[in-house]
């Protein structure tokens, strides 16, 4: 690839990314959000956060390597800490620390 082709490649990627971010606002720029979209806007976040968690774990294999044990432990610690203290940073730090401990020592 020449430099010009590389620049074009990056710009296409950037433009396409911006299109996905602006799409909803471009197509539904009217005064009032359509009823179906308002409904989706309310119930999508719960579903999307679930999807994002699965997305983060998509490459975990339960049959090989560490069998997903560090991930399961990290997530369990995160959720339990959060249910207990409701301190976002504490939950995240605790879960991550446990995960790092697992992958650096037990499953190194």
């Amino acid at each position: 690839m020449t430099l010009a082709e590389q620049i074009l490649t990056v710009l296409i990627g950037a433009a396409a990314t911006q299109f996905t971010r602006f799409a909803a606002f471009i197509f539904f720029a009217g005064k009032k959000t359509p009823a179906f979209l308002a409904y989706l806007g309310k119930c999508l976040p719960g579903a999307v956060f679930a999807l994002l968690v699965v997305y983060c774990l998509k490459d975990v294999s339960v049959f090989t390597g560490s069998r997903g044990i560090p991930e399961a432990a990290g997530i369990a610690a995160t959720v339990l800490l959060h249910l207990w203290k409701r301190q976002m940073l504490l939950s995240i730090a605790g879960g991550t620390a446990l995960y790092m401990l697992f992958v650096q020592t037990v499953f190194a």
Partner: peptide, 8 residues
């Protein structure tokens, strides 16, 4: 991952 878990 932990952050998305907390937000979820």
């Amino acid at each position: 991952t932990a952050m998305f878990t907390v937000i979820f």
